[in-house]
Design a protein around this nucleic acid. Sequence first.
DNA 1: GCAAAAGTGTTACCCTTACACCCATGT
DNA 2: ACATGGGTGTAAGGGTAACACTTTTGC
Lengths: 231, 231
Amino acid sequence: MPAYDPSAFPQFAVTVDLVLLTVRDGELCALVVKRGGTPYKGRWALPGGFVREKEGLRDAAVRELREETGLRLRDVHIEQLATYGDPKRDPRMRVVTVAWLVLAPDLPTPVAGTDAAAAKWEPVDVLLSEERLAFDHETILSEGVERARSKLEYSSVATSFCPDEFTVGELRDVYETVWGVELDPRNFHRKVTGTRDLLIETGRTTTRGGGRPARLYQSGVAMLNPPILRP
Amino acid sequence: MPAYDPSAFPQFAVTVDLVLLTVRDGELCALVVKRGGTPYKGRWALPGGFVREKEGLRDAAVRELREETGLRLRDVHIEQLATYGDPKRDPRMRVVTVAWLVLAPDLPTPVAGTDAAAAKWEPVDVLLSEERLAFDHETILSEGVERARSKLEYSSVATSFCPDEFTVGELRDVYETVWGVELDPRNFHRKVTGTRDLLIETGRTTTRGGGRPARLYQSGVAMLNPPILRP
DNA sequence: GCAAAAGTGTTACCCTTACACCCATGT
DNA sequence: ACATGGGTGTAAGGGTAACACTTTTGC
């Protein structure tokens, strides 16, 4: 099989960027890293990097995730978000970036890896209103947040924001934070416990939230057609 | 602003591919073109091509759409589907392709352009069961069809399959064909005519379907939260 | 005991579903 | 007249939303 003539069509650099979301202190937060080099030096940006020669796109996203946060695949939900390739999105050359949406539980340490000069969790409201993100990352973050919000409705991804074992009240906090609404605790409880394959009871309980001990659950395998919840 | 050293990271070719769907004769069909060159010579493939040097991804998709079908942007619904970049998806070199989902009304002539040696509309059921498509296009088509099916539920994209003016019965045919189900004509009628901003009445009627004259509508601008329809 | 959160029961309301029925045209 | 699809009315059933009420802990 003959190879293409490389001069026959344009050459692109391909990167992956992560919209890595978590719920911290009642706020939906994204991980951002401070850029060490040009362009946008010193500005905050989404974590990401170049796809390697013989690396799949998803593999590249998972590798960046591990390098930037130490998170492993089994801890998080990851899905492709969208691809951005405006000819002018990087002033130096033509770069197409494949963005990935990652939903993770709150992490003890914000960042484990040291690939970037600095990293932090920041509320998405702040990031989106300040308009200080590098490149077109504000657009990417915005679409990632929108995707996350709508996915809570008809899938079980909300549990990806929770630790391995969690209570119904903690799961409700996720919905309330991501959607910015208040939900009726009683109806919420009935709904999620009544949805088949959404939650797996562990038999254990906890009183970490105060009040009567709450049953602890693990994430089930539900990905149901009818909306799981709607505000 | 200094340019990158092009040898510092891998070079990719970037293409766009179209999952171009329409409803013909009660079947959901996709446009496929016969490949003239290697690899997969003579096999059917999704229409697509290389993104140009200074061309946006969406612009490239719209250009391919016009070249392959003569369709203009205002005639169709177009949205980004997903990006595929397995290192081995093209045996010659590293190619990342951005796939676009296009929903179009049934066309008088299958193909207007002549960029490809041959082109045809083929039922997606046939394409997906024969396993004869080039590259990873069966996966791409499959995910495009799945996206189209789920989008009918909570958006008004079904009208994109209809001509400029259409009846409620014709719109129902779209749902029944794409979903492969039968819907109650009376309840369907009530539902779509009762959904605000989904349909715009033209004042005209037609008897082209036989029976009592049906009111003709144009597509509205609805993109509503609650599912418009569910089987 | 009291506050706080978990969890259960009950009822009104709404939306969907199923189907009886009438309408307006072509043949 | 009658077949065909368009369109309206209506009643039963399931799910949601609102909220009264009980349970079980920590302090």
